[in-house]
Design a protein around this nucleic acid. Structure first.
Lengths: 334, 334
DNA sequence: CTAGGGAAGTTTAGCGTTAAACGCCCGCAG
DNA sequence: CTGCGGGCGTTTAACGCTAAACTTCCCTAG
């Protein structure tokens, strides 16, 4: 069953294809209401849907946005964290409402980026889950509107970020108010990620001194190891602030496994307010960030960039909020 | 900066566009090795990438696959569960390896399906997260290769499923071996989902009698409520088998909140072996299903359907495995 | 009475690619 | 010699759509 084309509609309506095209695209300047109505009716009846490829070819715009993610472990886990999933969902919703489609693509190197973007003539690209260094290596095309999430925008690209410094401060305030003085900061500080650096900077702001830092990837397993290590190597610490809930959950489990009580002996504070913060026990106190807002903001910013109405602010920064649950409590007096 | 086209390459190489096209597509029957080499070199130098839209228009094939998901809560959470995320990741990887791209799209009704599929001339469609009834209402296009995940394939569509009956049996065997006789089954039994029905049937097979059933959506919150309800309304039950880990985690928390000990008073068994099964405490015993395998199988099956080499089996069923952790133990003697 | 202008179209050309049909030249069998 | 079949291409038309230029026709102002 061949596709219904403009030509089919045109023939049936007794007008030229151009007229049908104009009606379909709401370009009603040159079409009489009567003709428009007829065409509209036939379009409905026949269930005509314009061909994306043909439109793209003619207009050089695709209404297609790529979401580029790191291809790790063979690319199986392309949405690594709950955070990413939530952002991706909101991004898709934001694009869908404005009549754009999302292409999901894991990429490994600049060549793959180039290929995806060029092949599909993507109108725009959103990049998530890469560190600044990786991003630089990806060599994102200059001429395609781009929004990076949780990374530094270099020049022309837009960026959506969380107020990480504010989040770090919030964490510091909370822990300080509970009487904690010896706080361990835990996260992938070796990745030179501006996100991690920001959270640490915020914490330092409040605590006044450099907190002890323990390096760990943001996975549960790394958290587990880090928790045990903290119990062993930093026995005097009374609180741990981790850059992600997943990591915090692991740390907490590791501490408990090492015989510490949470929060009586050690408080644990996470970041994100992922669902799992409520599932683990003790439930995690955390700095909530607005992941859905991130996705929506990315969609909006990108569409702005695409349409060329140069947004005043190419960097959107979303607020954070402290959520107190069971994993943080007053510092134990020793 | 305009796109590099076949024409550009052709001009530079002093041949016709058709020759370049043939070289690029590895259609070397009519091209001398020397010419091919020259063209190849220039293609590399110029970084030529074929235009997807143009190719699609000419060949009527897009190498584009749509992943259709339910648009719920405003479509923000398009990948509802960890299970879905993992499947989607593996699907993307499978398609990518075979040079196809994935379009992620939340849909609400038949019109939206129609629109996405027609507009982009999708070569194939994967559908996940819908019940059989919803699927029927979506009215998936007859003429587009389709693979449904965790639903019944109606006729021409392919299906990838888990051996749910086997999983149910495994659950039953495990609980039976531990001495449990009064088992509660918990899941969205009202949705007439073949997945849930299969797991229940497997459990019944082993237990010999109809287990008590408590209806609940597969969310942590519903699990929490269900757990408390089970403690109240079915105080003599010694084990609960839930259709998803997320649900099981909630049930377990609800039971504990109601004063029951897990597993001493009540055992809890989940399904999926999602990451969170390891994060909660007690850690969840569960029936592991191969979500990555599901995604890969879906990719493979779909590509088969697309290429018309009619696969012998349009229904792929993946195996399950019992994973024993802390949440299940011997039945308490009363 | 005519120029000008808007309303309602249509025609032309082109987006980048490919399938299919059509050369052309050379070597070799009859 | 003629014919004819490979090897190596080229040409043509089409895929479905749109931007821009072009055509009518009618109405109104001067």
């Amino acid at each position: 069953m061949p596709r219904v084309t403009l030509k089919d509609i045109a023939r049936e309506a007794g007008v030229s294809v151009m007229t049908v095209s104009n009606v379909v695209n709401g370009n009603l300047g040159r079409v009489s209401p009567a003709t428009a109505a007829t065409v509209e009716r036939i379009v409905q009846e026949r269930g005509y849907v314009p061909s994306g490829p043909a439109q793209s070819l003619a207009t050089r715009r695709t209404r297609l946005v790529g979401l580029l993610l790191p291809a790790r472990d063979g690319g199986i886990s392309l949405l690594g964290s709950p955070h990413d999933v939530s952002v991706a969902g909101a991004l898709e919703a934001g694009l869908r409402e404005r009549d754009h489609h999302l292409m999901l693509r894991a990429v490994q190197d600049a060549r793959e980026v180039q290929d995806s973007v060029q092949r599909w003539n993507l109108d725009g690209v959103v990049v998530m889950g890469f560190t600044d260094d990786e991003l630089r290596a990806l060599d994102l095309p200059e001429d395609v509107p781009t929004v990076v999430i949780d990374a530094s925008a270099d020049g022309r690209a837009g960026a959506v970020r969380t107020d990480d410094v504010g989040g770090g401060r919030l964490a510091g305030d909370h822990l300080r108010a509970l009487g904690h003085r010896r706080v361990v900061f835990c996260g992938p500080t070796d990745s030179r990620s501006p996100v991690v650096a920001g959270r640490l900077a915020g914490l330092r702001d409040v605590l006044g001194a450099d907190p002890v830092t323990v390096v760990a990837r943001t996975s549960y397993e790394d958290g587990l190891a880090a928790g045990e290590r903290i119990a062993r190597e930093h026995p005097s610490a009374t609180a741990v602030f981790a850059t992600a809930d997943l990591l915090a959950a692991g740390i907490q489990a590791g501490l408990i496994r090492a015989g510490r009580r949470v929060p009586q002996d050690v408080s644990v504070l996470g970041f994100d307010d992922a669902d799992l913060a409520r599932y683990v026990s003790p439930s995690l106190s955390t700095i909530r960030q607005d992941t859905a807002g991130k996705g929506r903001a990315a969609a909006e910013l990108l569409l702005r960039l695409i349409h060329g109405d140069n947004p005043r602010d190419r960097v959107v920064r979303l607020g954070v909020e402290l959520v107190v649950r069971e994993s943080t409590g007053p510092a134990s007096v020793d």
